[in-house]
Each structure stands twice: as C-alpha cells, then as structure tokens.
C-alpha cells in the first residue's frame, strides 16, 4: 500500500540520538510566500535539536481555507497529496498551530467517509506537530542558544492554544533567550480577529477585535510582539502599522533561532 508508513516512523517520545529523526517541514503557504525567514528559522531550530530536515517541494497548502468555507471537495483536493508526500517522514512539523491543527484534528474529519484514507490520515495526525511544542515535548529541548536584548509580549494564537494546547512551550524557550524578558498581555488568549477569510468577510468586526488586541499589545510596553502563526501576525502587524505604531513584530521561531538579524520584522521598515 502506497501510504504505508515506513518502518522508521514509529513516534517515540524519547528519541534515540542515532539515527536522527527525519522531519518533514510543512512550510505553510503564508510562510512560503510572505516570510521565508520563518521557514529557515524552523530548519535551524530543528537541526540544532538533532533532526534531519527535509522539505518536500511539491507541498502547497493544508486545505484549511476551503475546509472552513464549507467546500469539502476542494479541501480534499488540496489536502490529499500531502498525506502521501509525508508518508515516509518520522515527523511532520509546521511553524503554525493552525496548519498543524488542521492536519492533526481536521484531516480525520475531512476524510471520514473515505475508508482507504483512514489509516494514512491517522498516521499523519499522530506524527504531526506544531514547531515549538515539537521542540519542547518531543525533542525535549530545555533552552535555545539565542540572545535578544529587550522585552517581548506573546499572543497565543487560537488553534495552537485550544486545539494543540500550545501555551507554556514557547514561554519556556523564550525564557532561555539571553537578555529577553516577557511582558504578558492582559488577555493573551483572546482572538486577534484574523480567522482566515473571516477578516475579509466581516472586516468591521475583525477590525474591532484586532483594535482591542493592538491596544492590549501597546499597553504591555513590550519592544516586540511575537506569536506562532503568520495569519495572526500579519493581522496584528498590519493593524499596528495602520495605527502608526512601528513596534517590531516577528514569528517566535525567528527569536528562538536567533535570526532577528536576518531580516527586518514583519511589515518593518528598512531601518531594521
């Protein structure tokens, strides 16, 4: 059967250093098109944690936009190739709680009526992880070799938080960054109003939500805003700019991988 996982793909919570786990990076469409630095940060973090990273070049998207629009046929069409593409990797890791959540929680629903897909979908869901929680929970990473001189605040993106329980993991690694301090938001778990197509279908409501969010962010007094999902980050960064704030905004992986010098922040002007 073509979808059968390879013999090396049994997930193990205490990885043997030899052989190194082979990780398939699911780049995600927003990182691919808008923020390659996040992809390279992910590769760096994974390699430093002892993984071999592979990037299947035919990958596109997890199908979430169609899935959430109620167009299941389109969602299946987009999602299906990924399942074979990642069949031979020990793990699949995405720098996004939303896309990882789609593969872990929603692929089984999406393919529920297709008995042939049941096994491969289950296998994929079992070995797929959001980047930061993979580093802490699977690779048992205790800290990172990175430095950032300043304070950050952290937005908990909804899918990662509620579908995958990503909450303490990024904070734990951030605390190991030399010179970095965390200013928590008043409401770090409140949605930023992105919601995929929601933000363009209901722009006024989304605008109110992201406005409340940026107020909270600015009140935190932090130098930099971090989160683990590009959709939320683009929404919040875009709103901060519209409000005239030049606060630096980055994906958490960029700070953890010590790659903040590699590129200016999201929607950050050339001054760096």
């Amino acid at each position: 059967m073509s979808f059968a996982p390879s013999s090396t793909s049994t997930p193990s919570s205490t990885p043997d250093p030899t052989p190194k786990p082979r990780v398939g990076l699911f780049v995600t469409c927003l990182v691919d098109m808008f923020r390659p630095t996040v992809g390279f940060s992910a590769v760096k973090l994974l390699e430093e944690a002892g993984c071999v990273v592979d990037v299947p070049m035919e990958q596109v998207c997890c199908g979430q936009p169609a899935f959430n629009a109620g167009d299941l046929a389109s969602a299946r069409k987009v999602a299906k190739p990924l399942i074979a593409m990642f069949a031979d990797h020990d793990y699949v890791v995405a720098p996004s709680g939303s896309c990882a959540g789609m593969m872990i929680k929603h692929f089984p629903e999406l393919f529920a009526n297709d008995p042939e897909m049941a096994e491969p979908v289950k296998a994929l869901a079992a070995k797929t992880w959001e980047l930061v929680s993979f580093l802490t929970d699977v690779m048992k990473l205790q800290g990172v070799a990175a430095a950032f001189d300043g304070s950050i605040t952290y937005h908990d993106s909804c899918s990662g938080l509620r579908e995958l329980k990503v909450k303490e993991q990024p904070r734990k690694l951030l605390r190991s960054v030399t010179g970095l301090s965390i200013n928590e938001l008043q409401e770090p778990e409140t949605c930023c109003g992105f919601g995929g197509t929601f933000c363009v279908k209901y722009p006024e409501i989304s605008g109110k939500m992201v406005g409340d969010k940026t107020t909270d962010i600015k009140n935190s007094g932090a130098d930099m805003l971090l989160a683990g999902d590009m959709g939320c980050l683009m929404n919040m960064a875009g709103k901060l700019r519209r409000e005239g704030s030049d606060m630096e905004v980055r994906h958490v992986a960029e700070v953890l991988a010590d790659m903040t010098m590699a590129a200016p922040g999201i929607a950050g002007s050339e001054k760096g």
């Binding site: 691919d32 990037v55 875009g238």
Partner: peptide, 24 residues
C-alpha cells in the same frame, strides 16, 4: 480587490522570494 483587508489594516509585504525558491 483586497479592500476587506486594507480598509482595516496594512498588508505586510512579502520578503521577495518564496521559501521554496530560496530553499531550492
């Protein structure tokens, strides 16, 4: 065609090349 986004907030610009281009 993107007023739903830009009426409310700026659209952060991409970095230039895609990850896959750079990776290749």
């Amino acid at each position: 065609l993107a007023s739903g986004w830009t009426d409310i907030r700026d659209l952060p610009a991409p970095q230039g090349k895609t990850f896959k281009q750079l990776w290749a």
